Amino acid sequence: MTNCDFLVVGHGIAGATLAYVLRQRGHAVLVYDPGQDNSASNVAAGLMNPVTGKRFALSWRVADLLPFAGTFYRELEQRYGQSFFSEALILKLFSSIEEQNAVLARSADTPWENFVAGFATANPGLPGVNAPFGGAWLQHGGHVAVRPLLAALAAEGTREGWLRRETFDWSRLVTGPAGAVYAGQVRARHVICCEGAAAGRNPYFNWLPLSSNHGEVLDVDCAELSAAQVLNRGAYVVPMGAGRFRVGATYRRPPFTEGPTAEGREELAARLAVITDLPFGVVGQQAGVRPAVLDRRPLLGPHPAVPALSFCGGYGSKGVMLAPRMAVLLADWLEGRAEIWPEVSLQRYNALWPAGVI
């Protein structure tokens, strides 16, 4: 029988950061993950943007989440001797004079001054960039190389034996007052579901209002396009080095076809053609299914009727920015140090749980 303090199911950005935090605090952690190459975390461009959506609104708790995430990823860089986090300016390109005026008016308010580095009210003259109406330069953001980061953590997990490349079978989990036993082989004090979009099929948590959506990205070669910043207008264009960029992302609600699609490729190529008139070559296309929540806030906390079981996820497109802070918050709660914030607590949806069904 293998004994552990915490059994984490899933090693995407949510599960990987949580497992790392718990291990750093001295807990015995065991992780199950099937190692899907096309998971949402592996496909993601890892963009950390202080702004959300077309309304140019500041992201939720951005003043806390953004610097926290940056410090966290720098710590991982030191640990593994690799570069994961690239702090970069983000140029939000204006599509019209009306949008330019609206953004200029909004950004005069606090706390915008902390995230806006400046404005270009005319074309800033960046190589290959179509910006006739200028744009807003956003600071303190950047992008995370999620796939290499997860690979570094997984390599350590395989080497040290705390990561098992297996699909977790929830029907083989037996819970009780003292914890849980899995498949008659693993005993854990607590089990945390970090399965991403797959949690919608989890018998313990399929009642949660998870709204999975399908997203695609393109990798393109465009050697002459400015790579000094992230570009954003209807799509993000993230520099990956050596004249290559990741362009994304599409957003499809169910029902959708999993995997890359011709429609996704055409849509993203058309969006990139608005940003640049330079020729570009598509060298890769990937697709994943994001785990989102209807109110666009994460879900953390215990199952209403199974004290030994918790949930961690629902990060949507903000996963790399949310994951470090949410991992520490949940770890603090698991250790009895702090309460989960009400706006991310799973308990806000307890009324949806069909009582008596686990």
Results as ranks from 00 to 15, higher is better:
residue 80 Y to N: 01
residue 116 V to Q: 01
residue 184 G to N: 13
residue 40 A to P: 12
residue 16 A to H: 04
residue 218 L to F: 06
residue 321 M to A: 14
residue 240 M to R: 14
residue 13 I to F: 05
residue 248 G to V: 07
residue 120 A to W: 09
residue 214 H to D: 07
residue 4 C to S: 13
residue 211 S to C: 11
residue 148 P to L: 02
residue 71 T to W: 10
residue 337 R to L: 13
residue 118 G to K: 07
residue 243 G to Q: 11
residue 153 L to N: 03
residue 215 G to M: 08
residue 156 E to F: 05
residue 255 P to T: 09
residue 179 G to K: 00
residue 183 A to L: 12
residue 113 E to K: 07
residue 109 D to F: 11
residue 20 Y to R: 07
residue 346 L to A: 02
residue 270 A to T: 10
residue 326 M to N: 07
residue 131 A to H: 09
residue 127 P to W: 12
residue 182 Y to H: 15
residue 143 H to N: 11
residue 151 A to P: 01
residue 136 A to R: 03
residue 230 V to F: 09
residue 304 P to T: 00
residue 131 A to N: 06
residue 274 V to K: 09
residue 310 S to M: 05
residue 221 D to M: 12
residue 128 G to Q: 01
residue 103 V to K: 12
residue 337 R to Q: 15
residue 77 E to F: 01
residue 161 G to A: 12
residue 318 K to W: 10
residue 57 A to G: 05
residue 206 N to R: 15
residue 301 G to H: 00
residue 205 F to P: 00
residue 30 L to S: 10
residue 333 W to R: 11
residue 266 E to M: 02
residue 81 G to C: 01
residue 302 P to E: 10
residue 123 N to W: 09
residue 152 A to T: 07
residue 252 R to M: 07
residue 178 A to D: 15
residue 129 V to P: 00
residue 299 L to K: 01
residue 161 G to R: 11
